[in-house]
Amino acid sequence: MTSSLTMKNVTLKFGGLTAVNDLSFDISRGSISSIIGPNGAGKTSVFNMITGFYRPTAGQIILAGNQLVGKKPSQITRLGMARTFQNLRLFPNLTVLDNVKSGMHSRTSQTVWGALWQTRAQRREEQLIEDTARDCLRFVGMEDSCWRIAKNLPYGAQRYLEIARALATKPRVLLLDEPAAGLNYEEKEDLIALIKRIRTHYELTVLIIEHDMGLIKKISEKVIVLDYGQKIAEGTPENVLSNPRVVEAYLGKEEEAI
């Protein structure tokens, strides 16, 4: 299998604090992988580095042959990286449809000129944007909510909307930051099915940050465990979750346990 996303010896320091230390991993194309670890282990920092919001202190991040370090988030999105945020970052006062249309920005090219004269190319592109946005919404089962204002949606729907918005950027790699947080059991089952459908339908690679072990076991082919910014284990879910170091990171040492 070819690799899609590679981290090579990535370190991230904030002043004296090392958030991520010498992290390397390799995500193969078309796979679903997870990053787990206790709170503050540096998981979201990894996402922020991959998407260009943080600049690593050292190391390389490579997406399908392209070096990502030093690029702006918008450039990285153009290269095929899409993400959701841990604490929902929708465009709250805009409609669901307009939210998803944002994903098409980097895949379209009309400028001021086209908008002012309403050229044929402009109208064709607007149609394309709308169709793609509707397709993405249909895929997550939200096309009926097109005209609703994003902030008025129930929480679960807002999570799905964020995923639809990420899909509209036509990514190669989709990063999901705690997609199951705040969802109940049934919603989690739906989410698992959705992520699997996304992988096959859009032929992309999925990387998930998650706390829910059940979800991770059901969905991921590979699990990477972070603790204090270090990778302490990597492998299939069964192997990793029985690894004593992982158990220790989550529950504390044997003698400290009750």
Binding site: P73, T77, A82, F85, R89, N93, H105, R107, A115
Partner: peptide, 20 residues
Amino acid sequence: RIGRAWMYIREDEDAAEAMG
């Protein structure tokens, strides 16, 4: 497309940047 981009920035700059 341009006008929407402005509104995305107004609503949430970081999310807009993440959308390319």
